[in-house]
Design a protein around this nucleic acid. Structure first.
Lengths: 146, 146
DNA sequence: TATTGTTATACTCTATAACTATA
DNA sequence: TATAGTTATAGAGTATAACAATA
């Protein structure tokens, strides 16, 4: 869970700059992250949810470890959990018999689709903005990444 | 660490709405949270950083647990860690001798001040926006919380 | 009796190191 | 010899339950 929220709980002094003011409001809106709640509600543990997320296609264990930025040895347990729930299967790699490809089952693909759609859903405060404000926000943020 | 980033890693289908588009960009900008990196660089573990954050004034163990949304029993260990580092002290509560008030030491206050200033610092992408865009962003976000 | 904080215990997530089976 | 994955083990973070001191 989040012991990470900053604003609103600790009374913060005036930020002193426009960027600081914007950041203060933004942090209060996006932390804690909504997808943590989604993982919890789905009954999946964070690590399992993370693995499901990157399994958009069959991947080797080491590939999953790299995407999750964790050690290979963890992936063994995480994939064990996915297999136990019937969400994924270890399959042999055609070229290299050391490699195991992890593929979602039909049920795994169903669950993943549902959770990914949920995770992409904009939070209520964003849906509640006027269409103009939504467009403005989107455009400013796009300039920030340009 | 973050096994929580969504955008940019998994190719996501077009969001299909202005809010969805805005959210997609926003998520790529704010996850993983910058204060996780701050905690790590400071050599504090996330739980310790969280406790330090809520100790703007002396607080009872149970109060800390409530703010961190964790069990009382965890706070014992977290405060043990703060004490071992010389950052906080258990002091007796004047009214109720069951209660222990945790107060930061001078060193704890110094470190907390430094970390909080760091955590409030707007990220580079926000500082890099034009003044106009910063103001626009701030005002839209303020309307979202109104 | 009820409450505050501690201890005992257990489960999850993470990492390192030693091991296996391939290459 | 090197690599992919597993196992053994350990440390941190979390939770529940039983306990001591105090109310």
């Amino acid at each position: 869970m989040s012991k990470t929220t900053e604003t609103k709980r600790v009374p913060s002094p005036a930020a002193g700059s426009t960027a600081g003011e914007a950041w203060e409001v933004l942090a209060s809106l996006v932390y804690p992250p909504p997808f943590l709640a989604i993982a919890q509600e789905s009954g999946l543990r964070p690590a399992t949810f993370g693995a499901l997320r990157v399994l958009d296609e069959p991947r080797a264990m080491s590939e999953i470890a790299a995407l999750l930025r964790c050690d290979n040895s963890n992936v063994t347990g995480i994939v064990d959990g996915l297999e136990a729930r019937g969400l994924a299967e270890r399959t042999a790699s055609p070229g290299d018999r050391r490699v195991k490809l992890i593929a979602l089952t039909a049920e795994g693909r169903r669950l993943r689709g549902r959770l990914m759609r949920e995770a992409r859903k904009p939070p209520a405060w964003l849906e509640g903005l006027s269409s103009d404000d939504q467009r403005t926000l989107r455009d400013v943020l796009r300039r920030a990444t340009a």
